[in-house]
Design a protein around this nucleic acid. Structure first.
Length: 259
DNA sequence: ATGCCTCCCCGAGGGAGA
């Protein structure tokens, strides 16, 4: 089962590039971030005609997450628990019914800049809520994953120019510590379980020719429970997608599970 | 790099992103 995460930076703006990638990559499940659309305006038909079930958690203009799945989805839940007042659409989860059930969580973690400030406070508070949800997932001792745009550069090797990110919310020690705290529950970061060394990125800024200089950062991640990690056959970044027509600034990351 | 693009809103130009 091929499962991908892709921050598309606007569903309307990706009306050509996203179907093109779907037809090429043929993922079974896709977690989308930054759909920037309310549920009513999401072009479900574009995906349903390709055989996907569609579940969205959108909001106007900003954020918004969705799940596409060729397999049935059950028990869909929207919004990260822990703060009734948080209206930002950054979390959706569902159970994929394959040979065995897999709980999948799609997330768009807050950017957090500038540091310090209320946006950074919101990022860290959101990560504490994520930790609580992660702890419950781990306690269930079942195949599960949390994937999406984490807006976290885990290590210096995950940035082409780490010194340029030292004071950024994506790389600040507090942000990385919060990410490690979640990993330390026992999650496997899928890409780093299989590939080591620098030069592997999932985001390149639109500005200053970042793609042509390979001036990127790796901020889109898969976190797997042990029961899911044991099923992993592969994990790759579709970096070439960044060079296609009218690309998102992120590219897809995918895993293959024996499931 | 105090943001060089690109997205959204809509129908100008500002907020947000990372």
């Amino acid at each position: 089962m091929k499962i991908a995460t892709f921050n598309i930076n606007g569903i309307k703006a990706r009306a050509e590039a996203l179907p093109r990638w779907l037809d090429e990559a043929q993922p079974d499940v896709v977690l989308l971030q930054e759909i920037k659309s309310i549920d009513e305006n999401f072009p479900r038909e574009m995906f349903e005609e390709r055989g996907y079930n569609v579940e969205t958690h959108g909001q106007k203009s900003f954020n918004g997450v969705a799940i596409l799945s060729k397999l049935p989805l059950e028990d869909v839940s929207r919004g990260l628990p822990g703060d009734e007042d948080d209206k930002q659409a950054r979390w959706i989860e569902a159970t994929v019914i394959g040979k065995q059930a897999l709980r999948i969580c799609g997330l768009y973690l807050p950017n957090g800049n500038p540091v310090p400030g209320p946006k950074y406070d919101y990022k860290l508070a959101w990560m504490e809520r994520l930790y609580q949800r992660a702890r419950d997932l781990m306690a269930a001792e079942e195949p599960a994953l949390m994937a999406g745009d984490y807006n976290i550069i885990p290590q210096a090797e995950d940035a082409a120019r780490p010194d340029a990110w030292r004071e950024d919310a994506l790389f600040r020690p507090e942000s990385r510590a919060a990410f490690r705290k979640i990993l330390n529950l026992g999650f496997t970061e899928a890409f780093r379980a299989r590939t080591r060394g620098p030069g592997h990125y999932s985001f390149w800024d639109y500005q200053a020719g970042a793609w042509n200089k390979n001036d990127g950062i790796r901020i889109d991640h898969f976190l797997l429970t042990p029961q899911a990690a044991d099923l992993m056959r592969d994990c790759q970044i579709d970096a070439a997608v960044r060079g296609h027509e009218k690309p998102s600034d992120h590219v897809p990351v995918w895993i293959d599970l024996d499931l």
